[in-house]
Design a protein around this nucleic acid. Structure first.
Lengths: 225, 225
DNA sequence: TTGATAAAGATAGTATTACTATCACAAATA
DNA sequence: TATTTGTGATAGTAATACTATCTTTATCAA
């Protein structure tokens, strides 16, 4: 039996559902490759179309603009991470163990998930690290938020916040700590490779050190209260 | 006597020093206003030139492109913050008090500094919150870093890292904690106003709560070791 | 006072980007 | 068989991100 993991996407993000056709899946697949390779600023629908072997207009039939495509990709990623978390923390009773598992999932390199043929999670993870913030650091963030574009990110944050509360029911900042963990799992990774003196891991460049830092930060922070 | 605060800028950031002429100062002043108002994506040298009353070519004589201008502005800001910190923590012996002061300076709203006529620090603070990461989240980050464009940010991070070590000499992650404080002081602010469910301050929208969160995070985190 | 130099203004031009529009064709569907 | 739907092909436009050139103006030195 072949199980296919399907992540439910916000329909306002696209004009035509990319999951429903070969061209659509190619748009997702090749946009991940191109953004990973050249960065989001240099990424255009024209280059994407050439890469796929279709025309610019073809891409525009699926996505209004590259900003919505970026939100689509990051949303997909957060949805996928939430699934990974619920999958890998299933059956774990101890919330501390659970939270440590979450930190590891967020900060460790991701192996490509064979269940999702057209999405390379490993590349997508790198894209979310380097470009993910650009999805919300815009003037339209308010309107995008009204359309629920950031729901997957917020849901993930809520899930992690609840685990934090399980660990420490009186802790006052579960959601802020959750968003701090998520952001820092990614930023410390970006810094480690690109601006190493902003971290303590420049020498070794080991993701395990980021995990250790976050564990230390989180569990000392929580224990106090 | 009128003291003029001068922040030494990396000369590779500009073609002509904007501090040396009226037009240059106008470029800085109006770019801050325009980026604040419309965001960095919508900001163009053409609009800036119209705003100032000069021509596009005039702006290009000072800055190669808008990315370098953004790095210039954020660098200026980090330099200014480092000065504020050294000024406001001067004479403080207790490193814990010092670090708390630092957190407050990073997370609290900034009043416009009258010493710097053409820079509105209050607006610049908002720009750094919403656009600052875009200065380094690029494919050129490596080359920009080689040219020392991020030195002011790194210097600030080092200063804060050292205060952390004064508080807790055995703490293993002073630089990562420093960059976490800096980034989160800004991100929690952005989230609070734009994606409030990622924080615990959505109701009150009080910066004092961000400060309390960071104090809690930092001092519980350090005490353990 | 002249003459040189440097900054600024004015204008033009180009390649690329970010779209929108239209028409034709092929496959699926009713 | 007729019709809808997705795709391909082509064209066109306004804006963006520059580069180039030429003129004017201000400054400063001989």
């Amino acid at each position: 039996m072949k199980l296919q993991l399907q992540i439910k996407m916000n329909e306002a993000l696209f004009l035509r559902n990319p999951e429903g056709s070969e061209l659509g899946k190619n748009i997702i697949k090749h946009s991940i490759q191109l953004i990973y390779k050249n960065g989001f600023e240099a990424f255009t629908f024209k280059k994407l179309a050439e890469d796929i072997g279709t025309t610019e207009a073809g891409v525009y039939r699926y996505f209004e603009n590259k900003h919505k495509l970026l939100i689509y990709l990051t949303s997909w990623y957060w949805g996928w991470v939430e699934f990974q978390i619920s999958f890998h923390t299933n059956n774990i009773k101890d919330p501390v163990v659970k939270l440590k598992r979450v930190i590891k999932l967020l900060a460790a390199t991701i192996e490509d998930d064979k269940q999702t043929s057209y999405v390379n999670e490993s590349l997508l993870h790198q894209i979310v690290i380097a470009e993910g913030s650009k999805a919300y650091l815009t003037k339209q963030v308010g309107e995008d938020n009204k359309q629920q574009f950031f729901k997957p990110y917020k849901d993930l944050c809520a899930v992690i916040g609840n685990i934090i509360l399980e660990c420490s029911p009186k802790y006052k900042y579960p959601k802020s700590l959750a968003s701090t963990i998520i952001e820092m799992a990614h930023y410390q990774n970006f810094f480690m490779y690109n601006l190493p003196s902003l971290t303590d891991f420049g020498k070794t460049k080991e993701e395990t050190e980021i995990i250790a830092f976050l564990n230390d930060l989180v569990f000392s922070g929580i224990k106090k209260s």
